[in-house]
Amino acid sequence: MLGISTVAFGNLLNAQVIERQPRSAGYDLRTVVRAACEHWRRQAAGRGAPGEERVLSSARARQAVAAAEQLELRTAIARGEYVSLAAIGKALDGLIITMRQQFLWAIPPAVVAVVKDHAPGADSGAIFEAVDDVVRDALTQFADGAGQIADTKPEAGEADVGLKHARRLRGAGPDHVGDGE
């Protein structure tokens, strides 16, 4: 009567779209047609069964939120509120090179001048070499990733590096400049 097979009618009964009736009572054609049409209308609209409705609507809500966030990000980028990672890297490269040059060319001579003010008889060459070694060691540690901020306590043997340079300045120990290194 509806133009559907008995299997399709059984599926509507199993999905509880149509309320099951005893054989003796039969089915009211208007009620069956209304229920089936409402069910098919809901499916066509993407709502399906009541349980499916929540799943689909939450998926649509997540999709709408994602689209809104993407639009906000594009707008912020267009306004210049975000900077590309490449631009930050390029700026940091220049800063790091400048800092490295300052560490290598400005700090050792400045330390020599300060030490010479306090100890006029100190060996300028030994002071320069010791400070230059400390700066180069520190830059090498940072380049190797060992000089991270979280590492506040030196590992075993790392503290000896500073002592080695201090001994060189005082002229004590086997690391003294002029001992045939």
Rank of each mutant, 00 (worst) to 15 (best):
Leu2Val: 03
Leu2Ala: 04
Gly3Tyr: 04
Ile4Lys: 06
Ser5Asn: 03
Thr6Trp: 09
Ala8Arg: 14
Ala8Leu: 15
Ala8Met: 12
Gly10Asn: 13
Asn11Phe: 07
Leu13Val: 02
Asn14Gly: 09
Asn14Met: 06
Ala15Gly: 08
Ala15Phe: 07
Ala15Pro: 00
Gln16Ile: 02
Ile18Asn: 01
Arg20His: 05
Gln21Asn: 10
Gln21Ile: 01
Gln21Ser: 07
Pro22Glu: 15
Arg23Ser: 09
Arg23Gln: 07
Leu29Arg: 14
Leu29Glu: 12
Arg30Pro: 00
Val32Ile: 00
Val33Leu: 13
Val33Gly: 04
Arg34Cys: 03
Ala36Gln: 07
Ala36Glu: 04
Trp40Val: 11
Trp40Cys: 08
Arg42Leu: 15
Ala44Glu: 11
Ala44Asn: 06
Gly48Met: 02
Glu53His: 14
Glu53Gly: 01
Arg54Gly: 14
Leu56Phe: 14
Leu56Gly: 12
Leu56Ser: 11
Ser57His: 08
Ser58Tyr: 06
Arg60Thr: 01
Arg60Gly: 05
Ala61His: 04
Arg62Ile: 08
Val65Ala: 12
Ala66Ile: 09
Leu71Cys: 03
Glu72Ile: 07
Ala76Val: 01
Ile77Met: 14
Ile77Pro: 01
Ile77Asp: 03
Ala78His: 07
Arg79Val: 04
Glu81Ala: 10
Glu81Gly: 10
Tyr82Leu: 11
Val83Pro: 02
Ser84Trp: 08
Leu85Thr: 13
Ala86His: 10
Ala87Leu: 13
Ala87Ser: 15
Ile88Val: 15
Gly89Val: 04
Gly89Ala: 14
Lys90Glu: 15
Ala91Phe: 04
Leu92Glu: 11
Asp93Lys: 06
Leu95Arg: 10
Ile96Cys: 08
Arg100Gln: 14
Arg100Glu: 13
Gln101Gly: 12
Gln102Gly: 15
Ala106Ile: 07
Pro108Arg: 00
Val111Phe: 09
Ala113Gly: 03
Val114Tyr: 08
Lys116Met: 06
Gly121Tyr: 14
Gly121Ile: 09
Ala122Tyr: 02
Ser124Asp: 14
Gly125Lys: 13
Ala126Pro: 05
Ile127Ala: 03
Ile127Asn: 02
Asp133Thr: 15
Val135Met: 10
Val135Thr: 11
Val135His: 07
Val135Lys: 05
Arg136Gln: 04
Thr140Val: 13
Gln141Asp: 15
Ala143Val: 06
Ala143Ile: 04
Ala143Tyr: 11
Asp144Gly: 07
Asp144Glu: 15
Gly145Glu: 02
Ala146His: 07
Ala146Arg: 12
Gln148Asn: 09
Ile149Leu: 13
Ile149His: 11
Lys153Pro: 06
Pro154Leu: 06
Pro154Ile: 05
Ala156Tyr: 10
Ala156Val: 09
Gly157Glu: 02
Gly157Asn: 03
Glu158Val: 01
Ala159Leu: 14
Leu163Phe: 10
Leu163Asn: 09
Leu163Lys: 12
His165Gln: 07
His165Thr: 00
Ala166Val: 11
Arg168Gln: 05
Leu169Cys: 04
Leu169Ala: 03
Arg170Phe: 08
Gly171Cys: 00
Gly173Phe: 02
Pro174Asp: 10
Asp175Gly: 10
Asp175Leu: 09
His176Thr: 15
His176Ser: 12
Val177Cys: 08
Asp179Arg: 15
Gly180Trp: 01
Glu181Ile: 14
